[in-house]
Computed example of a mutant assay.
Amino acid sequence: MNIVDTYKEDFLTYLNSKIAVKEPVNLYEPMHYILQIGGKRLRPILTIMTCDLFKGNAKEAYDAALAIEVFHNFTLIHDDIMDSAPIRRGKETVHHKWDLNTGILSGDAMMILALQCFESYEPIIFKKLVQLFNKTGLEVCEGQQLDIDFETRNDVSIDEYIKMITYKTSVLVAAAMKMGAIIANATEKDTENIYNFGLNLGIAFQLQDDYLDTFGNSETFGKQIGGDIIENKKTFLYLKCLQVCNLKDKEKLLGLYNSNKTTTTKVEEVTELFKKNKIVEITINEIAVYTKKAFEILNEMDLSEDKKAILKNFGLSLMKRTI
Rank of each mutant, 00 (worst) to 15 (best):
N193C: 03
M177Y: 12
E300L: 11
V244L: 06
L35S: 02
E151I: 10
R41M: 15
K278S: 14
I287N: 14
S304W: 11
G39T: 11
H32F: 09
G315P: 09
E305Q: 15
P86L: 03
G222K: 04
K312A: 11
L207A: 02
L311E: 08
N16I: 01
I148K: 11
T187S: 15
V171S: 01
L242G: 02
N232A: 12
I81H: 08
E29A: 10
V156E: 03
D149M: 03
F11A: 10
T166R: 12
L199F: 07
T166I: 01
A67D: 04
L15K: 12
N313R: 12
D10C: 10
K233L: 07
C117N: 10
I125W: 06
N134C: 13
V25L: 08
T283C: 10
T271G: 00
I230L: 04
K127Y: 09
L15H: 02
L273C: 11
T262N: 10
D80W: 08
V156C: 07
K55E: 12
V244S: 06
Q206W: 08
K292F: 05
T93R: 11
T47F: 07
G38K: 02
I34S: 10
L46D: 13
G255V: 00
M110V: 05
E286T: 09
I158A: 02
E119K: 00
T50C: 13
V289K: 14
A175F: 05
M177G: 13
L132D: 05
E29N: 05
D63M: 05
Y7P: 04
W98G: 04
L76S: 11
G216F: 04
K18F: 05
A58K: 15
M1K: 14
I162K: 06
Q131R: 12
H72T: 04
V130P: 01
A309M: 14
L27C: 02
M319Y: 01
M111V: 00
V94G: 05
C245G: 02
G103P: 08
K223L: 00
Q206L: 07
S106D: 00
I112E: 07
L318T: 06
Y121S: 03
Q144S: 07
K40N: 03
I68M: 13
N193M: 03
Y195G: 04
L201Q: 07
V270Y: 07
T13N: 13
E142A: 01
Q208A: 07
Q145L: 09
Y257E: 03
L273H: 11
D10E: 15
L247W: 00
I87C: 05
G255L: 01
D190G: 09
K250C: 01
K312Q: 15
K307Q: 14
I297Y: 13
L46T: 07
H78M: 06
W98P: 12
G226E: 03
A64I: 09
Y238M: 06
D147F: 01
D249I: 07
L239H: 02
C245D: 03
T271P: 00
R89L: 06
N185R: 09
S218C: 00
T169V: 04
T214P: 05
T187W: 08
T220I: 11
S259W: 06
D99S: 11
A184K: 07
Q131N: 15
T262K: 14
I225D: 00
L316W: 04
T264L: 12
F133R: 08
T262R: 13
A174Q: 11
D80E: 05
E9S: 15
T152Q: 13
T265D: 03
D155P: 02
F295D: 09
I229M: 05
L303I: 13
Q224K: 01
I165A: 01
V171A: 01
